[in-house]
Simulated scan of single mutants.
Amino acid sequence: MKFICKKDNLKNALAKIDRLVLKQPNLPILGNVLIKAINGRIELYSTNLEIGASAHIGGIIENEGEVAISPRILAGFLANIKEEEITCVSNDFDLELKTLKHKIRIKGMDPKDFPIIPENPEGFYFKIKPEFFYQKLPIILISTAKNDTRQELNGICVKFFPEKIVFASTDSFRLAECVYFLNKEDIGVGYLEFAKNNPFIIIPFFTMAEISRVVDEEMLFSIDQGQIFISNSKFRMISRLIGGNYPEYEQILPKKYAIEVIIDKDGIMDALKMASLVTMMGAGEILIKSSKNDGQLIISSHSGEYGEENSNLEAKIKGDDFELNLNSRYLIEGLNALIGADLLKIKINKERSPITINRIIDGKEKEDETVSYIIMPIIKD
Rank of each mutant, 00 (worst) to 15 (best):
N197G: 08
G334S: 09
R213E: 08
K256G: 11
R72M: 12
A341Y: 00
I51K: 12
D171C: 08
L10S: 04
M269I: 10
F93T: 05
F93S: 10
K16M: 13
D110P: 09
K316F: 06
N39R: 15
E308S: 14
I117M: 10
D92M: 11
K196C: 04
L34Y: 05
P71L: 10
L153T: 02
E163Y: 02
E50V: 09
M109W: 03
N312G: 11
V278M: 08
L74P: 04
I268D: 03
I268G: 03
E369P: 00
F124K: 15
I156C: 05
R329Y: 06
Y191C: 10
N325W: 01
P115I: 05
N232G: 01
N183L: 06
L153V: 04
K7S: 04
R359V: 01
K380M: 14
N48Q: 07
A15F: 00
I38Q: 15
M219K: 06
G334V: 03
R236I: 01
C5Y: 01
K316H: 11
L220D: 02
P130Q: 14
Q135E: 07
F322M: 06
M269K: 11
A283I: 11
Q296H: 10
E83F: 00
K36D: 07
M237G: 06
D171G: 07
E285I: 13
L220R: 14
L95M: 13
G282W: 01
D113K: 13
K364V: 00
K101P: 00
